[in-house]
């Protein structure tokens, strides 16, 4: 899309705000609507927009498919790792109270934060990876 000046300029202005909104949705998920799933999809949508306007190759320079292939399982590992950590601290699997021995509510907040981070990583990288494979297939 070399000729579409308006699309290029507007999307360049929009994409940072999209990513910022995704972060808001992610970290405000405890207090308002949102969470890892929604934020992950919004992050993926921002990069898909970039790929639609500036091309797949330019997008893969920013985030390479190899990086995404690492990020997909990493998210699941973070999630399961929180569970294993609470095991080791003497609680049940995913019992966030065990994360902070002084104040259980801090443990809950930290646990939810970590788990949602894992979900964000897996969802966003999977969606983007699926888009890459479809778009890179060519005709």
């Amino acid at each position: 899309m070399r000729g579409h000046l308006i699309l290029r300029v507007v999307s360049k202005i929009l994409i940072p705000f999209l990513l910022l909104f995704a972060l808001y949705v992610q970290f405000h998920g405890d207090f308002g609507p949102g969470g890892g799933f929604q934020a992950g999809v919004i992050v993926a949508a921002a990069f898909v927009l970039y790929a639609l306007i500036f091309g797949l190759r330019a997008t893969q320079k920013i985030i390479s498919p190899a990086l995404l292939e690492v990020a997909v399982p990493l998210g699941v590992l973070i999630y399961a790792g929180v569970g294993v950590y609470t095991w080791l601290m003497g609680g049940n699997f995913l019992d966030y109270n065990m994360i902070d021995s002084h104040d259980p509510s801090h443990g809950q907040h930290l646990g939810v934060l970590l788990v949602e981070a894992g979900v964000l990583l897996t969802v966003s990288s999977t969606m983007l990876l699926i888009f890459y494979t479809f778009a890179g297939r060519g005709r």
Binding site: G29, D30, F31, P33, Q108, V112
Partner: peptide, 9 residues
């Protein structure tokens, strides 16, 4: 859990 959004909690 002290989380106001029940869906998240």
């Amino acid at each position: 859990t002290t989380i106001p959004n029940v869906v998240t909690s």
